[in-house]
C-alpha cells in the first residue's frame, strides 16, 4: 500500500476484459499515468479478475490482447496489483500461471486497502 496523504490512486477494475471498452480505457489510463511518473496501484474485483486470465488468445479476432497489455505493467513501475480472492476461486483462475504477480484479498482486506488511498478510480 502506498498510504494516504500522497495523492495515492487505486484503480478499481470490475468488468471483464472484452465485454466493454472499460478494461481497455482503464488500462490506458494506468499506463498513461505511470508514463508521467504517477504510478497507480490496481485492484481487480468481481468480473474484473477475468482480465488476469492467462489463456486469452486474440489470434482469431484482430483485437488488442488485454492480458498482454497487463503484462507490461511492471515495466511502467506498476507492481502493486491486488485481486478479489473470492472471484478468483469462483472463476477457478490459476493466479500462479497469471500474467503478473498479484496478491489475493478477502472482502474485509479489500475494503481496508481501498480506504488507504486518497482516490479511487472505477473502471
Amino acid at each position: 500500500m502506498r498510504g494516504s496523504g500522497k495523492n495515492a490512486v487505486l484503480m478499481v477494475f470490475t468488468h471483464s476484459p472484452y465485454g466493454s471498452s472499460l478494461a481497455g480505457a482503464g488500462l490506458d489510463a494506468a499506463l498513461a499515468s505511470a508514463a508521467f511518473e504517477q504510478p497507480v496501484d490496481l485492484l481487480f474485483i468481481g468480473d474484473g479478475v477475468l482480465q488476469l486470465q492467462s489463456k486469452q488468445d486474440n489470434q482469431a479476432l484482430k483485437i488488442k490482447h488485454m492480458g498482454k497489455v497487463l503484462a507490461s505493467l511492471p515495466l511502467y513501475g506498476i507492481d502493486r496489483v491486488y485481486v478479489d480472492a473470492k472471484a478468483v476461486s469462483r472463476y477457478q483462475l490459476d493466479l500462479d500461471a497469471s500474467l503478473l504477480a498479484t496478491e489475493a484479498l478477502e472482502p474485509d482486506k479489500m475494503h481496508k486497502l481501498m480506504v488507504d488511498y486518497d482516490h479511487l478510480l472505477s473502471f
Partner: peptide, 15 residues
C-alpha cells in the same frame, strides 16, 4: 508482440 502496446519512454528504457 509481447505486450500488444506501443511502449512509453519509461517502459522502453526498462525493457
Amino acid at each position: 508482440d509481447e505486450y500488444n502496446s506501443t511502449p512509453a519512454m519509461r517502459s522502453l528504457v526498462k525493457y
